[in-house]
Computed example of a mutant assay.
Amino acid sequence: MGALTPDTSTQAGLSRSGLYREASAGRWERIARGIYLPVGAAAADWDQVEAATRRPEATICLLSALAHHDLVDAVPAALDIAIPRGVRTPVSTGAISWHRFDRATFDVGREDIAIAGSDQAIGIYSSERSIVDAFRLRAEVGYEVARDALREWLRRGGKPARLIAIATRLPRAKSTVLNALEMLA
């Protein structure tokens, strides 16, 4: 069984107050404000569980996605999560950095992955989309991070045509990615 909130407690056959009683009795563990997991549940990344529970469209992006794809050596201080512009940014207790991405391009390069130790899934951007986003938002993540991720991706056999196809669909990306490809070639 996955994470429960007071609003979804009926999935486990509990009322809202029943969930609180079960948590007080030690059968459910509170992992974040309003989010509970069964005691003895497999180890999981609580930040990913919290993000996926608070926003079903939550997508791992930027430095966190680059680290997931093993394209950078940096360990992000917080989980970078993209949500569509116009939705409320949830209040979270975990180390989550929320980013707002344009609704029109939100699903470009997005796929779902299972959260290890959980029956939940969370979105993640492909390595190509993550590299393009790193160049687009280089003031936020650093140009060196974007360049190093691109270099590693190319070293592993990445196809520049796939990168350009993604960059063409995103604003302010194509020329920057083309310049970086030219410099590395």
Rank of each mutant, 00 (worst) to 15 (best):
R169S: 07
I83Q: 08
Q48P: 05
G109K: 04
V75K: 10
R129K: 13
G86Q: 05
I35V: 14
A51Q: 02
I164Y: 00
D80K: 01
E29V: 12
F101A: 12
T53H: 01
A42I: 10
A43Y: 09
P38R: 01
S9L: 08
T176E: 07
V39F: 00
A67S: 15
A42E: 12
T8A: 07
S24C: 13
I115K: 02
L66T: 04
Y20C: 02
A41Y: 13
D80N: 12
A180C: 11
R16L: 09
W46N: 08
R54T: 09
E57T: 10
G2N: 14
S64I: 05
A104V: 13
T168N: 12
G40I: 10
T176I: 11
I131W: 04
A77F: 05
Y143R: 15
R55C: 09
I166R: 00
A82L: 05
V87Y: 02
E152S: 11
R136Q: 13
M183D: 13
H99Q: 13
G142D: 10
L154R: 03
G34D: 02
H68P: 00
I164R: 05
P90I: 09
S127C: 11
G94D: 00
R30S: 11
S126A: 13
S15V: 07
K174E: 13
D45F: 07
M183L: 15
A116H: 10
L71Y: 10
T93E: 12
I115P: 01
G86M: 07
G2Q: 11
V177P: 07
F101D: 06
Y125K: 04
D112H: 14
G109A: 01
G123V: 02
G2C: 04
A104G: 10
D7S: 13
A180G: 09
G109E: 05
A12Y: 10
M183R: 15
I166F: 03
R55P: 00
A139V: 04
L178W: 01
P84S: 04
R21A: 10
G13V: 06
I124G: 01
R27A: 11
A67G: 10
A58L: 04
P171A: 00
N179T: 14
T89V: 15
A114V: 12
R55G: 00
A25N: 15
A185Y: 13
A42M: 09
D133M: 12
R162H: 14
D102W: 12
A74P: 01
V132A: 13
V108M: 02
A165Q: 11
D112I: 08
R156N: 06
D107R: 15
R54H: 05
V72D: 05
R156Q: 08
I83P: 05
G18I: 05
E182N: 14
